[in-house]
Structure formats: C-alpha cells, structure tokens
Computed example of a mutant assay.
Amino acid sequence: MSDRTGGSYTRDELTTPTRSKERAAWDEETVHAILDAGYLCHLGFVRDGAPVVLPTLYARVGDRLYLHGSTGSRPLRGAKDERGLPVCVTVTHVDGLVLAKSAFHHSANYRSVVAHGTAYQVTDPAELRLALDAIVDQVVPGRSADCRPGNAKEVAATAVIRLELDRVSAKTRTGGVNEEPEDLDLPYWAGVVPVAPAYGPPAASPHTAAGTEPPAYLSALR
C-alpha cells in the first residue's frame, strides 16, 4: 500500500539510492520535469528468470506512465495478465561531461528518474487512444493533432502498458569538478563539457507537396 502524501512519491528502501543520497528527490515537481523533458525510456523486467531491458517511447499523463510497444511483444503480453508485469522504468538526461585532473573523479552531470511498480496493458479503447496521442505528443508536442490517427488495424497491432507512478525517485548531479587537493597543480585540463540534444532542419519526405513549410511546432523543437 502506498504511503504517498502531499506532492511526494513513496520513499522507501527501493527508491532511496545507496550512494550520493543528497542528490535524490521524491517531489512531484522534480520527477515530472525530468519525465516531461524526454520521450525515450528503458523498461526493465524479468523474462524466464533472466533480466531484460528494452528501450521504448513513453508519455506521462498525470501520475501515469504509458509505454509503447507491439501486441507481439512477449513482455507486453505478460502485462495483459491480471497480475500485471513487475517492471523498473528509467529515464536519463546527460547534461554535461565532467572531466577532472584524475581519472577517478571524472563524472557526468545528469537528471534521472527511476520508477518501480506493476505495469498493466491498456485495453480500454478510449484510454488506448489517449495514451497513443500522448506518446506522439511527448516526442513532438502538437503532432497528434496534425497527422492521421491510427485505424482499427493499426491500433489492434499496437500495445501500450500503464504504470502508476508511486515508488519513484529522481537523482541529479550538477556543478563542476571535484578534485583531490594534491591534484590541483597537475598540468591537465579540467572542466565541464555541456551536452544538449540538437535538432537539425526538418527534411521533407518526397510525398510532401512542394513549397509546404514545416509546421511551427517543429521550429519550436529547435
């Protein structure tokens, strides 16, 4: 049973990191901001006694994560069972490469979220439509209203699993380099190399009418 209270997610032994605990956070604002800044997650589960981790697209809607897949996928078929599928979902953004004068103190600035729980396949048609639109808009905001929605055959071939956010934590690192005092005068360069996603100019498909300008929401990405 969840012991979640007022804007914070469950804090327990599973959601508390064993190292650098001061970098962890459980508040909704931090967790949601990290999730909303991305669209690619890694889904972990156990299949036939062995760990499996798969990359997939996701969207957050309130306190739910929707993860995209195929109806032919074994893990997603497992989530259709009434017992659900125990999973761990992770999202990470790398914001900088931290280069120290010693190899030991090299690091990265990052934002990450780890969510544990039981996932279930979405079977309600209305919720499935909502989830699919949300996943499209998570990748490119505004796109779901500017393309043909899936037809009955396409929707039947697409699976979405739902994970209620409860046992969730965020972890971040910011700032500069940590150095040993005896290393400060070494002649090596040290500092932070910023990392950020980059979008190139949209390249139209051959089936886009000549002279058609890219929609404004694509310009917003850049």
Rank of each mutant, 00 (worst) to 15 (best):
D3V: 14
G6H: 13
S8I: 04
T10K: 08
R11I: 07
D12S: 12
D12V: 03
D12H: 09
D12P: 09
E13P: 05
T16Y: 02
P17K: 14
R19L: 10
R19W: 04
R19A: 11
K21W: 03
R23C: 11
R23K: 15
R23S: 13
R23W: 12
A24G: 11
D27N: 15
T30C: 15
V31G: 00
V31E: 02
H32Y: 13
A33C: 12
D36K: 10
A37R: 15
H42C: 06
L43W: 11
L43M: 10
R47Y: 14
D48L: 12
G49L: 02
V52P: 06
V52N: 02
V53E: 04
L54P: 12
P55M: 03
T56S: 15
A59L: 09
L67N: 08
H68P: 14
G69A: 10
T71A: 03
G72H: 09
P75L: 06
R77C: 11
R77N: 14
K80P: 11
K80Y: 09
D81N: 15
L85K: 07
P86F: 06
P86Q: 07
P86W: 08
V89C: 03
T92A: 13
D95A: 12
G96W: 05
V98G: 01
L99C: 15
A100V: 07
A100Q: 10
A100F: 01
F104W: 07
A108C: 13
Y110S: 13
R111D: 08
R111C: 11
V113C: 02
A115K: 01
A115M: 04
G117T: 05
Y120D: 08
Q121G: 14
V122F: 09
V122H: 01
P125E: 04
E127F: 07
A134F: 10
I135E: 05
I135P: 04
V136T: 15
D137V: 10
D137N: 10
Q138W: 04
V139G: 03
P141M: 05
G142A: 13
R143C: 08
R143D: 10
A145M: 09
R148Y: 05
P149G: 12
K153L: 05
E154D: 15
E154M: 13
A156V: 00
A156Q: 08
T158V: 14
T158E: 05
A159N: 07
V160M: 09
E164N: 08
L165P: 03
V168P: 01
K171C: 02
T172P: 08
R173K: 14
G176V: 10
E180Y: 12
D183R: 04
D185M: 09
L186S: 06
W189S: 03
W189A: 06
A190L: 02
A196F: 01
P197I: 00
P197S: 02
Y199V: 07
G200E: 06
G200R: 03
P201R: 11
A203K: 11
P206D: 01
A210S: 14
T212R: 07
E213N: 00
P214K: 00
A216E: 13
Y217Q: 01
Y217V: 00
S219E: 01
